[in-house]
C-alpha cells in the first residue's frame, strides 16, 4: 500500500454537508437564531425559527432584544453565525429584493393572521386605510382591532404594516415611530404631500382620466397626483357614479 493511495482515498472521501444542514440541526434542537440586516430604516435584528422569520426589531442592545423575544415567543434566541435560506431571503427582501420570505406567525391569533396576510398584499407605493383593511377581511366593524393587530405585527417591513394609515391619510402609529412610517411611505414613492392636499380639500376619491376612481393612496395614481391635470377629486360615491366612473380594481375604493 502506498502513502499516495491513502492520500487519494482521504481526498476522494472528504464530504461536506448540504447548505441547510445547520438549519436542520437548529430545527431539531428547537433553538431560534437572529442576525443583523440593513434596511430602509437602518439596521434591524431579524430572528427566525424553523418555519420562517419570527421577528424584526430595530437593532440595539442584544440582551434587551433577546429578553423581549423570549418574553413574547417563549423561546430562546441566540445570535447566528451564518445565514441560511430563511435569513438570506429576509436580508435580500429588506434591501428591496423581490423575494418570498417564509414568515412564522404562530404567535398571532387567527384574526391577527388574517389582518397581516391582507396587509402583506399591499404593494410598494400604496397605502390603505385601517377601515379599508377591516372591510377587506370581512370584519368592517373591527377597524380598531385591525389597528391593534397591525401594532402587534412581529415582522414589520417584511409584512408592510406601515402601508396601512388613517382614513384622513395621516399616517397613524408605527412600531418604529410615525416619522419612520412617513419616511418609508415616501421612499416607496407615495407622495404623501399631494395626498394630503387632496384630502384637505374634502376629497375622498380621485377620478382618473381613463374612467376609474381610486383612493388617493392608490399606487396607480398616487405617484402622479400632482402632475397629471386630468385627475380631479370626488367627495362622494354619488359624484363618481354621476361621472360614470368605475371603481379601480387595484385599490378597490368600495366593497366588491
Amino acid at each position: 500500500m502506498t502513502e499516495s493511495n491513502v492520500h487519494d482515498y482521504r481526498d476522494a472521501t472528504l464530504r461536506s454537508v448540504s447548505p441547510n444542514f445547520t438549519a436542520k440541526v437548529f430545527a431539531e434542537i428547537g433553538l431560534d437564531r437572529y442576525t443583523i440586516c440593513p434596511s430602509a430604516i437602518g439596521d434591524v435584528y431579524v430572528a427566525w425559527s424553523t418555519p420562517g422569520v419570527a421577528a424584526v426589531r430595530l437593532a440595539g442592545d442584544e440582551q434587551t432584544f433577546e429578553a423581549w423575544y423570549t418574553e413574547r415567543f417563549g423561546r430562546r434566541v441566540v445570535p447566528a453565525v451564518e445565514d441560511d435560506s430563511v435569513s438570506a431571503a429576509a436580508r435580500a427582501k429588506l434591501q428591496g429584493g423581490r423575494v418570498t420570505v417564509p414568515i412564522d406567525l404562530r404567535d398571532c391569533s387567527p384574526f391577527e393572521q388574517r389582518v397581516l396576510h391582507e396587509a402583506a398584499e399591499i404593494r410598494r407605493g400604496n397605502a390603505r386605510p385601517y377601515r379599508w383593511l377591516a372591510r377587506e377581511i370581512g370584519a368592517p366593524d373591527a377597524t380598531r382591532a385591525v389597528g391593534n393587530a397591525l401594532g402587534r405585527n412581529p415582522v414589520p417591513l417584511l409584512i408592510p404594516c406601515h402601508r396601512v394609515i388613517r382614513t384622513d391619510c395621516s399616517v397613524g402609529g408605527y412600531v418604529f415611530g410615525s416619522d419612520a412610517k412617513r419616511a418609508l411611505l415616501e421612499s416607496e414613492g407615495l407622495d404623501l404631500g399631494a395626498v394630503e392636499k387632496i384630502v384637505d380639500r374634502g376629497f375622498r376619491y380621485v377620478a382618473t382620466d381613463d374612467g376609474y376612481f381610486c383612493l388617493p393612496t392608490c399606487g396607480d395614481i398616487a405617484t402622479r397626483l400632482g402632475v397629471v391635470p386630468g385627475y380631479f377629486g370626488l367627495r362622494t360615491l354619488e359624484e363618481a357614479h354621476a361621472h360614470g366612473l368605475a371603481p379601480c380594481t387595484s385599490c378597490r375604493p368600495i366593497a366588491a
Binding site: 472521501t13 472528504l14 464530504r15 461536506s16 454537508v17 444542514f21 445547520t22 440541526v25 437548529f26 434542537i29 433553538l31 437564531r33 430562546r76 441566540v78 445570535p79 447566528a80 453565525v81 451564518e82
Partner: peptide
C-alpha cells in the same frame, strides 16, 4: 446555546466525512 453554531460549523465536515467513510 450561544456557542453551539460555532461548534457545528467547526466540526460538521470532519464528522460527516468520518460517518460517510
Amino acid at each position: 446555546d450561544r456557542a453551539f453554531e460555532d461548534v457545528v460549523i467547526a466540526f460538521r465536515q470532519p464528522v460527516v466525512t468520518f460517518v460517510a467513510r
